[in-house]
Amino acid sequence: MPLSAADWSAISLSLQLATATTGILLLLGTPLAWWLARTGSWLKGPVAAIVALPLVLPPTVIGFYLLIAMSPSGPVGHLTEALGLGTLPFTFRGLVVGSVCYSMPFVVQPLQNAFTVIGQRPLEMAATLRANTWDQFLHVVLPMAAPGFVSASVLGFAHTLGEFGVVLMIGGNIPSQTRVVSVQIYDHVEALDYAEAHWLAGSMILFSFLILLLLYLTSGKSAADSLQLRS
């Protein structure tokens, strides 16, 4: 078997991290994206810019400030200690928090686009058909934005799998806790185990390719649907 037990542990950790991060981001990102898509508030610009920051900042910058915030003397650290959760740096939970921040735009932006495209009219229509706000969201917005949710999930998941800088800054390199695939590959290369690095890195390329392919196949279909609508 070309992949060692340590490799498998890293893969499992990466998948857990990506799943947890994507799940949390869908829960947080949906209302945030909904607000961004609808609001006329002056806060829209600043909030959208903050959400987009991870797209342009080096991961080390985000990791650095998260590390400081989550340290025992930082504001987040105070909070987590007061709640009896201990401190977050160098734990799996800490990695999840970091990943949520880092992958935020990859989930929020596709959702925001999907919500914007729906527009006001289907909601007004639903309201005149006696659907209240929650009913409108569940039975009109969610199904209509389904392709957006697929894109958001796939991008959020794939991007979390691929992160390295934030992980290294706030997670370190603890086997079975914070040593995810990208860090494991780095270790292999540092130890000049190029063959093992190849296996892991190659698998990562293949896996990422497959889920992106899935994304483009599904979004390609919805694009074709919307073309038919216009004709």
């Binding site: 639903a126 009913d135 009109v140 389904a146």
Partner: peptide
């Protein structure tokens, strides 16, 4: 709106496409 006993027909039919 959802509590008013009305029916509404818009200019463009606005059917739920899904």
């Amino acid at each position: 709106t959802h509590q008013r006993p009305i029916g509404f027909v818009f200019q463009e039919a606005s059917l739920f496409e899904h």
